[in-house]
Design a protein around this nucleic acid. Structure first.
Length: 813
RNA sequence: GCCCGGGUGGCGAAACUGGCAGACGCAACGGACUUAAAAUCCGUUUUUCCGUAAGGAAAGUGUGGGUUCAAGUCCCACCCCGGGCACCA
């Protein structure tokens, strides 16, 4: 056929329609005939429009999925919607439109956008987290956790805007004030909230990372390790002098306890409240509410003396009890012993308030510091001094012995503390999963029986953005009867954090319409762990940690058999414009829709993969996009004018086949190794350059062969163009279910090698030799080269380095 | 402050195990085709210097040292950029 110009619109609309008519096209067979491969991309929040970050994430995943199909796998490639969350509720407040309406209309639009990009999803598995069919299982899991003591209620501090009379999420607090009332300082209020006991799994979350070393980026593992923050130390009870009450502190350096010169409490500590009255109580409240306490810029330590003292159980010494701004209520016991001589923060605090500094550790090869001369603390391990029976011990040894002593004496113990806190899931919002419990005046907190699930969100609610959450203002919802005693009771009106939704959705994909369980364990088993998870590094901690936790809970419930849900994780870089993150506020958004209209989805996909390696940030550059369009057109035209062209003698066949098979080798290796699709596409460009330059001499058979292989090679990257070419080639589709081309080492091999010759490490000439030329012959050929001879003229060759197949280097004097 | 990444032409990048630095693409410039433009095709393009020219020389991967026949790649020190964590006792 004659050369056909590449018309992206015509090609893509034609295949869009055909694919839309075949929903079974991307279905995972799930029959065990072929090996299974689960490609998972992080599901989007249905904000209404796809952005370039999505396009990049899903282009990477789709390319991989299509490649795995071509490698003969039964590929699971599902998609869904992380559809609960604040934006829908904010939209409701603003436009008086129900969150569900807003959400579902966004989903409809984004689904079209995804399809138009040519992403091959098994839509029969579509999962939307804001539907009762899905969130009833969030409730089901909650009940299981409640039964096992993994879900519990406790008092906790929340951000409270007195103007809105509502709770704010952390991201709604801007500079210590409410996002809607910019001059109203946010207060800390105590509220009873629901928590999931993720800390019960802290050790497992840490230890099982060993299973992830091979498949996860080291950076993500490090971030999780730091987040979990395991630290070994000891808990020790000081005694309140006045009352004899115990005051427990946590320390990692119990070996320094003879140097403790005061005890410092977090301002939120109950004992602080108890000890402070009058002016002190006011100071305490100010400190608790001061937003700059958490601001990294103002790290000035401040505090005050409570007037009370405590007794150190090791030496009976009486020390003052202070309140300190820098002591965290959420970590350890919320109280510390200050050892200024050996901790920099304590040092700064005690020097500021003229508290004594008592050195008790000396360097292994040095003297004990003198208090008046100390400019900074000595934080290292050393030898313990002035510490009663432990004097003379090494720090490490003293830590062990002193902790054991505390336990033996009953005033403490060795202890491990985690930075990780239990997961607070209560949200005083409407658009989330209702927590399935009832508050009964008689029976207290009562779990809703399983057969009453789902507790559905009521639809007739008012969205004002003020006061209690819309759920709490809805009497019909709140008023209920106690499942236990049948008396009048009130429903819990808190909803769950949306991270709950995304903690297990990828299990639901495998069995999405199950009505009796979240999923059938037998169905899920062969697909897990997920072979490849792909998403932004922004989720490195929270989402990925919660999902790991959820998986372990499900394992303990007997639902799954894996410890870890994701075998391999890939984190892609951001899409930027002129080095800046695209954002609405900056007004520098590139809309995928515009790009698709102008250049087509294939070009868009090619560019996002070509511009940078996928793990790196990439910059959107429209003229570079045009380059991809030119490449795709060139490829399209080459194939259409060559595949059935009967002309040609075949004199350039070998050259074309050599480049073709080198390209197959390169692209295949990129899929296997590091997904540097930018170099795969570059290799395909090189191939097209070569094919174009040797075109005139090709035989008909090789024209055909190259046309087919090129079409197959481009198929994972540019599915529309490939499908069109495949059908022009006379084949029944779909192209992504054909076998990936095998490369032939013999055809890929160059006839002759060109070997660089260096003299003293500088390139002086090149010799062309057959493969497997011996070292001796390489040396001879190098010395015989004209340019090399000129370079060594009048000098003595002292050494010759020959790396067969690579280079020759002559060392001369 | 601590922990990770990274720094290569005008730009995005490549160089996978120490072995020809700059593949591929963008932009720019020159040419062919065209009445013209677009599209397409061909060519040049790291810098500096020598030469009318063919061609040749030197320098060059953030900076300074080092190891090596050979360093973008390995080692030491430093500078800059990006990300994460940030009083975690």
């Amino acid at each position: 056929m004659p050369e056909t110009p590449y018309n992206h619109e015509e090609v893509e609309l034609k295949w869009s329609e055909r694919w839309a008519a075949q929903p079974e096209l991307y279905k995972a067979a799930d029959d065990g005939v072929k090996p299974r491969y689960y490609v998972l991309e992080m599901l989007p929040y249905p904000s209404g429009r796809l952005h370039m970050g999505h396009v990049r994430n899903y282009s990477i995943g789709d390319t991989l999925a299509r490649y795995m199909w071509m490698r003969g796998y039964d590929v699971m490639h599902p998609m869904g919607w992380d559809a609960f969350g604040m934006p829908a509720e904010n939209a409701a407040i603003k436009r008086n439109q129900h969150p569900a309406l807003w959400t579902f209309s966004n989903v409809g639009h984004m689904k079209q956008q995804l399809a138009r990009m040519g992403f091959a999803y098994d839509w029969a598995r579509e999962t939307n987290t804001c539907t009762p069919e899905y969130y009833r299982w969030n409730q089901w899991f909650f009940l299981r956790m409640y039964e096992k003591g993994l879900a519990y209620r406790k008092n906790s501090l929340v951000n409270w805007c007195p103007e809105c009379a509502t709770v704010l999420a952390n991201e709604q607090v801007v500079d210590g004030c409410c996002w809607r009332h910019e001059t109203t300082p946010v207060e800390q209020r105590e509220l009873v909230q629901w928590f999931l006991r993720i800390t019960a799994y802290a050790d497992q979350l840490l230890d099982d990372m060993a299973q992830l070393e091979a498949g996860w980026p080291a950076q993500v593992l490090t971030m999780q390790r730091n987040w979990i923050g395991r630290s070994e130390g000891a808990e020790v009870d000081f005694t309140l002098k006045a009352t004899g009450e115990k005051l427990r502190v946590f320390t990692t350096r119990v070996d320094t306890i003879y140097g403790a010169t005061c005890v410092i409490l977090a301002p939120e500590h109950p004992v602080a409240k108890q000890l402070c009255s009058g002016d002190l109580a006011a100071a305490l409240k100010t400190m608790i509410d001061d937003p700059s306490r958490k601001d990294p810029e103002t790290q000035e330590k401040s505090g005050f003396f409570t007037g009370a003292t405590a007794v150190n159980p090791y030496n009976g010494q009486e020390v003052p009890i202070w309140v300190g701004s820098f002591v965290l209520w959420g970590y350890g016991t919320g109280a510390i012993m200050a050892v200024p001589a050996h901790d920099q923060r304590d040092f700064e605090f005690c020097r500021k308030y003229d508290l004594p500094v008592t050195p008790v550790i000396r360097p292994v090869d040095g003297e004990l510091a003198i208090e008046s001369e100390m400019q900074e603390c000595f934080p290292d391990y050393g030898v313990v001094e002035n510490s009663g029976p432990w004097s003379g011990l090494a720090s490490a040894e003293a830590r062990k012995q002193m902790a054991a002593f505390a336990e033996q004496q009953g005033f403490g113990k060795a202890s491990i503390t985690f930075r990780l806190k239990d997961w607070g899931i209560s949200r005083q919002r409407y658009w989330g999963t209702p927590i399935p419990v009832v508050h009964c005046p008689v029976d207290g907190v009562v779990a809703v029986p399983e057969d009453q699930l789902p507790i559905e969100l009521p639809t007739d609610v008012q969205f004002t953005g003020e006061g209690k959450s819309p759920l709490a203002q809805n009497e019909q919802f709140v008023k209920t009867t106690c499942p236990k005693c049948g008396g009048p009771a009130e429903r819990e009106t808190d909803t769950m954090d949306t991270f709950v939704d995304s903690s297990w959705y990828f299990f639901r994909y495998v069995d999405p319409r199950n009505t009796s369980l979240p999923f059938d364990p037998a169905k899920v088993q062969p697909w897990f762990p997920v072979d490849q998870y792909i998403g932004g590094v922004t989720h490195a901690i929270l989402h990925l940690l919660y999902a790991r936790f959820w998986c372990k809970v499900m394992r303990d419930l007997g639902l799954v058999s894996v410890d870890e849900p994701f075998k391999n994780l890939f984190t892609q870089g951001m899409v930027q414009l002129n080095g800046q993150t695209m954002s609405k506020s900056k007004g520098n958004i590139v809309d995928p829709d515009d790009m698709v209209v102008k250049y087509g989805a294939d070009t868009c996909r090619l560019f996002t993969l070509f511009a940078a390696p996928p793990e790196k940030n990439m910059d959107w550059n429209e003229s570079s996009v045009e380059g991809q369009y030119r490449f795709l057109s060139r490829l399209f035209r080459w194939v259409t004018r060559n595949f059935d062209n009967p002309a040609g003698t075949g004199e350039t066949d070998a050259a074309a086949l050599r480049k073709l098979h080198q390209t197959i080798r390169k692209v295949t290796a990129d899929f296997k190794n590091r997904w540097h699709f930018n170099t795969s596409i570059a290799a395909l460009m090189e191939l097209m350059n070569e094919l174009q330059s040797v075109e005139a001499g090709l035989s008909p058979a090789v024209r055909r062969d190259c046309s087919e292989k090129v079409t197959l090679l481009i198929a994972p990257f540019a599915p529309y163009a490939a499908e069109e070419l495949w059908s022009l080639l006379g084949h029944a589709g779909p192209v992504f279910k054909q076998s990936w081309p095998e490369f032939d080492e013999a055809l890929a091999r160059e006839e002759l090698l060109e070997i660089p010759v260096q003299v003293n490490g500088k390139l002086r000439g090149r010799i062309t030799v057959p493969h497997e030329t011996s070292k001796e012959d390489l040396e001879k050929a190098a010395l015989a080269d004209e340019k090399v001879q000129a370079a060594i003229a009048g000098k003595t060759v002292v050494k010759v380095i020959v790396v067969p197949g690579k280079l020759v280097n002559l060392v001369v004097r």
